[in-house]
């Protein structure tokens, strides 16, 4: 087990290296010059002579050969320095510290909601197969996996936010500042972020549960006269979790993708919105740093997922 984890960690480092190379060079393929964009966006009404532009370029180290720039960047990351944003003129670490907690707050909540509710509704649909509960859950999962999330966001804003006035329309407040307001504000964004995973998890859970229920050992358990709860929870549930866990691992990436859209709509100052504006503003340093951190998160989650297979199904050996 330990050797397996060590091997996986080495792999993760290799993957991370490739990620940095990819994002670094892809960003530099973008047509256009971040310095020009910055100057044009901030200084429309002011003339800026070319010497000043060159000076700015040197300030951000963009005048050096591209390979040198890469190694400088990597070197700085090891020192915990993610560089300075061209647009914000601010340390990227500071920007990320402002933004990541917000996205993680939403993301983790969405992940939990998506997993727990997904598993629960899938489970219910499976053990009540063909009954009315199944007939409500299954069609809802169809909507969940097909609706574009920005449409869902808009529908929620208009119905729940505007017409029914149940929840605030947009904005974000830290839960440490005002927990109740914060919770009310994140309900709609969390629904949007979670809806796809929730539906996918429920579908997966339902079908793998149905399959497990049909297995011999479950029939044996029934035959032994064990109660429904014991059979379901102790025997069936654990074994049907494996494919669902895989989905949850993939869900992390989906949540980051979703946050790009959802944070824009609900005016949430998270990392997704920062990412989108930085991609358009070609703020290399910010895009690189965020991608790096997201990659680390995705890798760690996947590692945990893979390790948890072993716990869920002892038949899996780590060779």
């Amino acid at each position: 087990m330990t050797t397996y984890i060590i091997r996986r960690l080495i792999q993760a480092v290799i993957i991370l290296l490739i990620v940095t190379i990819l994002v670094f060079f892809v960003m530099r393929l973008l047509p256009g010059d971040p310095i020009i964009i910055y100057v044009a966006q901030t200084a429309q009404l002011e003339a800026m002579p070319p010497e000043m532009i060159d000076k700015l370029r040197a300030q951000f180290g963009l005048d050096k050969p591209i390979v040198i720039q890469y190694f400088n960047w990597m070197g700085n990351i090891f020192r915990g320095d993610f560089g300075e944003s061209i647009f914000y003129h601010e340390d990227v670490s500071k920007l990320m510290l402002e933004r990541f907690p917000v996205t993680l707050h939403l993301g983790i909540t969405a992940l939990i909601v998506g997993s727990v509710l997904g598993l629960l509704s899938g489970l219910l649909a499976a053990i009540r197969r063909g009954k009315w509960l199944d007939k409500i859950i299954t069609p809802l999962t169809y909507i969940g996996i097909t609706i574009p999330i920005f449409m869902l966001a808009i529908l929620l804003i208009y119905t729940i936010g505007l017409r029914l006035s149940w929840l605030p329309i947009a904005g974000y407040t830290s839960p440490f500042e005002d927990f109740w307001l914060s919770t009310r504000q994140i309900i709609m964004p969390v629904i949007c972020l979670a809806v796809f995973s929730l539906a996918a998890n429920a579908r997966q859970m339902r079908s793998s549960m149905l399959e497990v229920i049909a297995q011999d050992y479950i029939r044996t358990a029934w035959a032994k006269g064990l109660s429904e709860r014991v059979v379901v929870v102790k025997h069936a549930l654990k074994n049907s979790l494996i494919p669902v866990i895989t989905l949850i691992g993939l869900g992390v990436g989906l949540i980051f993708s979703g946050s790009f859209i959802i944070e824009t709509i609900f005016a949430i100052p998270g990392v997704g919105r920062l990412m989108v504006s930085s991609i358009f503003g070609q703020d290399y340093v910010v895009v690189q740093a965020i991608t790096f951190v997201i990659a680390v998160i995705v890798l760690v989650v996947n590692l945990i997922v893979d390790i948890s297979y072993g716990w869920l199904d002892p038949r899996i050996r780590y060779g």
Binding site: L162, I169, G171, A267
Partner: peptide, 18 residues
């Protein structure tokens, strides 16, 4: 002053009196 990037959302907030 609150930043609302999406005009539809801003319009909804105006209508809701937020």
């Amino acid at each position: 002053i609150r930043r609302i990037p999406d005009p539809m959302v801003a319009a909804a907030m105006m209508e809701a009196g937020e």
